[in-house]
Design a binder for these strands. Sequence first.
DNA 1: TGTCAATATTGAGGAACTTCAATGCCACCC
DNA 2: GGGTGGCATTGAAGTTCCTCAATATTGACA
Lengths: 128, 128
Amino acid sequence: MPPEELPTRRLTVLDCAPLLSGTPLDEAGADRLAAALRVLAEPARLRIVSLIQAQPDREACVCHLTEVLGLSQPTVSHHLRVLFESGVLARERRANWVYYRMVPGALAELRQALGESGQPLAGGVTRG
Amino acid sequence: MPPEELPTRRLTVLDCAPLLSGTPLDEAGADRLAAALRVLAEPARLRIVSLIQAQPDREACVCHLTEVLGLSQPTVSHHLRVLFESGVLARERRANWVYYRMVPGALAELRQALGESGQPLAGGVTRG
DNA sequence: TGTCAATATTGAGGAACTTCAATGCCACCC
DNA sequence: GGGTGGCATTGAAGTTCCTCAATATTGACA
């Protein structure tokens, strides 16, 4: 296995119409959006993203995350890989350590796909 | 562990207060948010929400959804149950048919949890 | 070159989930 | 009341996913 870093794959959620727009999702669009949501629909991965954002410099190394999460190092590495390959996190090696940080705009894409489309529905103003 | 500036000794998990300055998710919060995301992280359920929202009157009965989705009736019923019990959909029986429609604000809650522009993953989702 | 620390990968066990056939339940109509 | 149509539930098969032990890989350093 070559020691190269995997290329960052960006989310392609926005190729489909927002969830609450007038045009329904086709099968392919639903599959893509579901895959993007599945990346975050996991407690350990949510905590990883949250922990990274909570750092003063908005980045964290694997050892720190492993310590805080209380999971084994391979498990944390697995989740980081999922987050990296889905385009949520970026990584950079410095000496012995690998630092992960958020990819700007990755979550905003998901929020838009969930219906941030100017539709009046989700504003919560239509109550009673 | 990576080198830190001052103090020289590594902080333990309980000591690392400065590293967690942005109120990261605790375990329970991560579980709740992951459960809420898991409800939508499924192509069939995404299509159901999308199809309902695409109806002129913003509601659909099971038979119509079953027809469009190309899934068996028990499978569609199962997904509708998941969406209903998680608070995404509401249902109402009229004669022989059961109509499902969106619960206003259900998705807005999720979008907020994903970080309404700049505050990612803060706050909580109350539905499990 | 050899050793050590940090991270990645592999493989397996087990839990959770999707799906459908079969069946049960409920409302309507004769 | 009996029959029918629409929907819900049950049970099982197959798949996906999380997790960890074991192992491999990489970079730093003597």
